[in-house]
């Protein structure tokens, strides 16, 4: 039972969230018409050992998508940020 500290709601049990997949991939823009970037986005994933960033959706809370740092080896969890904030930071 991992505990996720939602930036909006505070520390909650993982059962309030749905796992949302790899947060290190970015969706191609709407104008992208080549097949490969879409194939990569939908199908290709790295399988990192250790710290990873992934999406979780706080479905039983604020319904915000968050990005959680999790260690795939020992299930330790790290920082949790709003997806909208994290994406902004990258731009």
């Amino acid at each position: 039972m991992i505990r996720i500290t939602c930036p909006v709601c505070g520390t909650r049990a993982e059962t309030e969230f749905t796992y949302g997949g790899d947060a290190t991939v970015s969706r191609p823009g709407e104008e992208e018409t080549s097949m490969q970037p879409w194939l990569d986005y939908v199908f290709n994933r790295d399988n990192p050992r250790g710290w990873h960033r992934e999406y979780w959706h706080h479905v039983q809370g604020c319904r915000q998508w968050v990005i959680l740092e999790r260690n795939t080896l020992n299930h330790e969890v790290g920082a949790c940020t709003l997806a909208r904030d994290a994406v902004e930071a990258e731009e």
């Binding site: 949302g20 998508w65 709003l82 997806a83 909208r84």
Partner: peptide, 8 residues
Amino acid sequence: AEYLLQTA
């Protein structure tokens, strides 16, 4: 819908 509106 929420996912797309909060990310891409």
